[in-house]
């Protein structure tokens, strides 16, 4: 995939399929430490140990349409390509935590891409998911909570689809204020 934000969309989609109601996306970029860290935590049903060990194998999947699942293996590959690490922890009944690290300035590192579009897409697909998106760079930090969207809907008596454009604009502005060169 061309953007890390697409991997993030894919991973959170997995979390939603695992019946998560809360998801936290935490991104930290540090130019000084040449480090990019993406952590995704969910309260879904979790996976047994056996599955955690096998999950980055493309021939292991929960899908029923085909016996091949590329998602996690592609994400792991993206981390390893940029001298990073990939760490998955999961507890049955409690949830899953995925931590990806990248060398920020490694030439093979896939760009982060359009996080605003990823977050907005997740809200459209699953409006009652409680999604927190935190992002920190050398320039600053911010936190976006999907309840912001629900709050705007209630305040202005808008439908979900009417709220999407202002929400996206709000997110893009926030991202712009902390955007680093990475």
């Amino acid at each position: 995939m061309r953007e890390l934000s697409l991997h993030i969309l894919d991973i959170v989609t997995n979390a939603i399929e695992a019946e998560a109601t809360r998801v936290i996306i935490d991104i930290r970029e540090s130019q000084q430490e040449d480090d990019l860290r993406i952590r995704i935590r969910d309260n879904g049903r979790g996976m047994p140990e056996e599955m955690v060990r096998q999950v980055s194998d493309p021939f292991v999947t929960t899908r029923t349409t085909r016996p091949v699942g590329m998602g996690i293996s592609l994400t792991k590959q993206a981390t390893l390509m940029s001298k990073g690490t990939f760490d998955l922890k999961s507890t049955l009944g409690k949830g899953t935590e995925l931590c990806m690290r990248f060398r920020l300035n490694c030439l093979n590192r896939v760009p982060l891409g359009d996080m605003a579009e990823t977050v907005i897409n997740l809200i459209i697909g699953t409006p009652d998911l409680h999604l927190c998106y935190q992002h920190r760079t050398d320039k600053g930090r911010f936190c976006f909570d999907s309840y912001w969207v629900l709050g705007r809907m209630a305040e202005n008596d808008w439908s979900l689809y009417q709220t999407i454009a202002p929400a996206k604009e709000f997110l893009q502005d926030k991202i712009k204020t902390i955007e680093s060169l990475g």
């Binding site: 995939m1 697409l6 969309l9 894919d10 989609t13 899908r63 699942g69 590329m70 998602g71 592609l74 579009e117 990823t118 907005i120 897409n121 459209i124 697909g125």
Partner: peptide, 15 residues
Amino acid sequence: MGTCGIAAGARSVMT
């Protein structure tokens, strides 16, 4: 919006 859909551009289609 499976992995295949996302990789092929489903996100901008949805938008």
